[in-house]
Design a protein around this nucleic acid. Structure first.
Lengths: 249, 249
DNA sequence: AAAGAAATTGAATGTTTATGAATGAAATTG
DNA sequence: CAATTTCATTCATAAACATTCAATTTCTTT
């Protein structure tokens, strides 16, 4: 058997049951103990799994190196909680839109190995999406220099050719007036993405509530808000009868 | 059997089952071990597959290569010379297309402060372009995981909405047969970019001449070749009467 | 069309690499 | 702390490898 095939088989077993003994692998793959051990050593070097006494276990944290965006994110923990919850809402096999921005970025690790197709307008997102082996499309458009988001007419136009099961968006303002964001060009993109999605989710930490930014995006009822327990319940309720999910950690 | 036919057959088998042993290929293609090996070596050079002990696999496993374009560039000095020369050909105020790839990447520093608008299909290029303060647009499309290039129908479609003064492209093969590149999907993108550009330039270091890769892009006369003194003059001349610029350093 | 050059092929060669068994060392368990 | 399991290391063997060479085909040249 080809060594590469054998390693794939090992990974498959381990992904199914999280931890395996050497003996289980010997039986499953049909190879000698020595060979299995050697494979495990290599797979550990490749950061595909962690070796433990008696066998191996699935890698706990697949990503140790925080890239630029991770370091600079404020309220990171809160955003991560929201992101994890949002990712759970996604059914396998669906096609989702991931808006540029730090909160949606945090969703990526939780989207891995789920047979998804992701379309994004965030240049920053692309590299990470690829690292996690997620099939990625990017819309076209002008690159906004500060944020690496794609905006403008071309971006809106190219969005017209996609349809999404879910759209996940960040917003700067969430208020009775609706969702708002500082850049009108970005607002257009968000608007179009929501229009082309069966279901839309706005990911908003507690700092975004009762804020009104310059450019209007959509009315509050056009999306389901996902927020965290840090947010005042009264503020959420004042937005009216809408589905709001509050993450508990 | 013709060697090209044989290689196609090999690729077909490998695409069906992801990994193959040499023996499987010997049976499937009906050729000697030596011949299969030779084909695999060439196909690996063309980046169509990765050889592994005992056979070959479709793609390099992820996670083992740093995607940083700077570190992995071969013949970097030669490419820089070519890139510098190419950048000089650009008039201020024009709109240019920059193909994904390491040679075109080297052009970016020489494009700064020139009042240009750059459209690219290389994710890798974007960050650097922004760092140099260049107005950047990106075409849409599917992100090719190994290279970060945008390809596919969506990429070709979104290219239709642009017109360029200059297009700068990399190629894997430059020969009498025309320009060629390993990935058919990328070939489509290059083709369309050239069609939409008033003038096209192919940036090719000496290793690209007399090479024929899998997918046809355009005829040689459709672009001006920019190369370096490392390239055999005879090889260049054999391509016929076409404008070729040889960089001197 | 014939002679020669160049490229392609398959077999033979030593070399390298992968594998499984055997050994003693280290860790785990009762 | 002793018994047992698991681990790392070594070694012989077998498989896969690169390389060379001769035979064949294909392409040039005259």
């Amino acid at each position: 058997m080809l060594s590469i095939k054998r390693k794939e088989a090992i990974l498959e077993v381990i992904k199914k049951q999280d931890v395996v003994t050497i003996q289980q692998l010997i039986d499953a793959v049909v190879a000698s103990e020595s060979t299995i051990r050697r494979d495990l050593i290599e797979l550990e070097k490749e950061e595909q799994l962690t070796r433990v006494h008696g066998g191996a276990s699935l890698q706990k944290r697949r990503h140790d190196e925080p890239s630029m965006i991770e370091k600079t994110t404020r309220n990171k923990e809160e955003k991560q909680g929201i992101a994890m919850y949002a990712a759970k809402a996604v059914q396998s096999g669906s096609c989702i839109y991931l808006d540029a921005g730090s909160t949606t970025y945090e969703m990526i690790p939780y989207l891995a190995d789920r047979d998804l197709l992701v379309v994004t307008n965030g240049i920053q997102h692309v590299q990470t999406l690829m690292e996690y082996g997620i099939e990625t499309y990017i819309i076209g458009g002008k690159v906004k220099s500060q944020t690496g988001a794609l905006v403008g007419t071309k971006a809106v136009e190219s969005l017209r050719f996609y349809r999404f099961d879910y759209a996940f968006l960040g917003m700067n303002g969430v208020a009775l007036d609706g969702y708002t964001t500082p850049d009108p060009e970005e607002a257009n993109v968000k608007q179009t993405a929501m229009d082309n999605s069966a279901k839309s989710f706005v990911l908003a930490d507690h700092t975004k509530f009762d804020q009104v930014s310059f450019a209007y995006v959509q009315a509050v009822e056009q999306a389901i808000i996902i927020t965290s327990p840090h947010t005042d319940k009264s503020k959420v309720k004042s937005l009216g009868k809408l589905t709001t999910i509050e993450v508990s950690r």
